[in-house]
Nucleic acid binder design. Sequence first.
DNA 1: GCCAACGTTGGC
DNA 2: GCCAACGTTGGC
Length: 138
Amino acid sequence: MSYWLLKTEPSTFSWREQLARGKKGEPWSGVRNAQARINLRAMKKGDLAFFYHTGDEKAVVGIVKVIKEAYPDSSADEAGWVMVDVAAVEPLPKSVALSDIKKDKTFAEMALVKNTRLSVQPVTASEWARVRKLGGLQ
DNA sequence: GCCAACGTTGGC
DNA sequence: GCCAACGTTGGC
């Protein structure tokens, strides 16, 4: 079981919309970056991911679960790009801002900090636990 | 609105 | 195969 972080611009697709899809979930389409694709392909059913809002918010706002592994992205103009389906698991009682993440040395090596442009990135178990805690879970 | 970081493209 | 130019992402 692995952990991930998925970035989205809330005006394009927000946590509110993800929540509204419920257990049926939603395809995570539109990824057009080689490194991000590698990560999408590595995702297994049941893996968990943080849902991160870019733009004005810049915060982790919720947790989603992979419910369907990588398959062809129907929104792509050319073959080879993939998407997964994810469903909302739960919101974070308290969203965790990027500024808070940058302050905490637990996250010094996190892709969110070191590679700001990567939209699909792995999260370590310790990073996962720390963000959950900062977010008010357990 | 600007710019740093990164990726892609195209000339050589 | 290198690298300059350009485009995009996303934080500030």
